[in-house]
């Protein structure tokens, strides 16, 4: 039985990674605030074992030309996780009402252990619960976290994380919409800390995901602000060396500004790989600090669902104007080798 649990967390009342105060963007430090809707399914917290995923085969895709792009398989490896990002354009009631589009969305998300979703746009709160219900119709055990509605006008968006609870768990006290006292960002990032489910939790890969959809009219300023956001997350206690910024940046790898200028920062989508459905923009990416996030296996890709599911361009655009981007990571925390301790002083 599915249960919808609405949890409002205040900045001061919950101990954890981001509390009592979450230093975010700019000089002012304010408490984290967020309204989190979490669909918790069954006994997701009971097991700390890694389970094999998926039945049947299915190869995957990436219809791109870069040599390093890999296929993402339906059969997820037990010793690795796949992290994705997917801007599901105007993900709301009209999309839920399109079975063909939803089928593609569900099949895409099932390739991932966890995916950051952008552009949830609906006045109602049923979009993610309905998505998860469809995801779990095959016995899967996905759940989600969703952020507050954000935007400068009455038209707002929400971020969400959807994750396979048999593979990934989250720290409830780590979830936050980042504070932006200087009001640099149209839609402040939605962040949470996750951990792979393994037989040895103390050795499991832990990481922050920082979900972002920049304003296409203020990209330069916003990617610069993301550099600050990244460093703010790094400053949290307890420390986390793996901070992964992912989403629709509205910027190519060459336009990452202050975020991209952090020494050691790397991004998976490079070269002439395009991430939108029209195949003329590379706006979606997964960005992290390479020396620390040694869990990255080197495999990544763009899930071209138009080719994968043999859709016409018009059919593909009914799904989204963006393809999902993914990257693969080991489930075990990599040795820090002293890198993390020195990072704050090594940036340029």
């Amino acid at each position: 039985m599915l249960t919808v649990m609405f949890t409002a967390l205040s900045g001061g009342g919950v101990g954890g990674y981001l509390n009592p105060n979450m230093p975010i963007l700019g000089p002012l430090v304010q408490g984290a605030r967020q309204q989190i809707t979490s669909l918790v399914q069954g006994n997701e917290h009971l097991q700390n074992i890694v389970q094999g995923q998926g039945q049947g085969g299915g190869s995957a895709i990436s219809a791109t030309t870069a040599g390093s792009v890999q296929a993402v398989s339906n059969r997820r490896a037990p010793d690795k996780i796949t992290i994705g990002t997917f801007n599901i354009q105007v993900f709301g009631q009209s999309k839920l009402a399109k079975p063909d589009a939803m089928s593609v969305i569900v099949q895409c998300i099932r390739r991932f252990d966890i995916v950051a979703i952008q552009e949830v746009r609906a006045k109602g709160d049923n979009v993610l619960p309905d998505l998860v219900k469809q995801l779990n119709a095959d016995g899967s055990r996905y759940s989600f976290l969703i952020g507050p509605r954000l935007g400068r006008s009455v038209s707002t968006e929400q971020y969400a994380f959807v994750f396979d609870t048999t593979r990934i768990e989250y720290d409830p006290s780590s979830i936050a919409t980042m504070q932006d006292p200087a009001d640099l960002l149209h839609r402040e990032p939605f962040a949470a800390r996750f951990r792979t489910r393994t037989s040895a939790p103390d050795k499991a890969f832990t990481f922050y995901l920082v979900n972002i959809h920049t304003d296409p009219d203020e990209v330069k300023q916003e990617v610069n602000a993301l550099g600050d956001a990244y460093q703010a997350i790094l400053s949290q206690s307890p420390p986390e060396d793996d901070v992964i910024v992912l989403g629709d940046l509205n910027a190519s790898e060459k336009q990452l500004g202050k975020l991209g200028q952090i020494k050691g920062m790397r991004w998976v989508v490079t070269g002439d790989v395009m991430t939108n459905t029209r195949q003329n923009k590379a706006y979606d990416n997964i960005v992290f600090y390479g020396p620390s996030t040694a869990e990255f296996t080197g495999s990544w890709g763009v899930l071209n669902f138009e080719q994968e599911f043999q859709l016409t361009r018009d059919q593909a655009l009914k799904v989204s104007d963006h393809f999902p981007v993914w990257a693969e990571f080991q489930i075990w925390e990599a040795p820090k080798q002293g890198l993390f301790a020195g990072r704050l002083g090594n940036r340029r």
Partner: peptide, 18 residues
């Protein structure tokens, strides 16, 4: 169309963004 009802507004805004 941005002033229209939500089902219209969301797509109008998305169209204008892109």
């Amino acid at each position: 169309a941005c002033a229209d009802e939500e089902p219209v507004q969301v797509w109008a805004v998305a169209a204008l963004e892109e």
